[in-house]
């Protein structure tokens, strides 16, 4: 099981710069809901290009935040879009939403 958020790795990524860490967390908290919505919308209209784009964006930012579970779920969704296997996407999307629900409170703790 991947870690929902690896704070020590995030600190290594930001070179111990607390201001940079806070800025990244703030951006992620702002952007994440829109990206999850975009992924949901792409699945509901069965648009693989939009799904690939939205899940790729979430995967990239989750990777910098060291949010491994969300990153992995987003990568699975990007894989579904690129393979054209959209049938697997709703289940992967459920896993993503659950991971995001776990992640956001952890990030909010860091932004206090």
């Amino acid at each position: 099981m991947k870690e929902i958020l690896d704070v020590a790795a995030l600190d290594r990524q930001t070179g111990g710069d607390a201001g940079l860490r806070a800025e990244l967390v703030r951006m992620f908290l702002e952007d994440c809901p829109q990206r999850v919505d975009a992924i949901g919308a792409a699945i509901s209209v069965a648009d693989p290009a939009a799904l690939a784009s939205a899940s790729h964006a979430l995967k990239g930012s989750a990777a910098y935040l060291k949010a491994a579970t969300v990153r992995e779920c987003a990568a699975d969704l990007e894989g579904c879009a690129r393979d054209g296997s959209l049938a697997d996407a709703p289940a992967a999307f459920d896993r993503l939403r659950a991971a995001v629900e776990d992640l956001l409170p952890e990030l909010r703790k860091l932004s206090v």
């Binding site: 930001t14 070179g15 940079l20 990244l24 951006m27 992620f28 964006a57 930012s61 910098y64 935040l65």
Partner: peptide, 15 residues
Amino acid sequence: DDRIAATVLAQTLRQ
């Protein structure tokens, strides 16, 4: 185009 990636890259380079 991802502002999180751009910020962490740019700030690391500025450090």
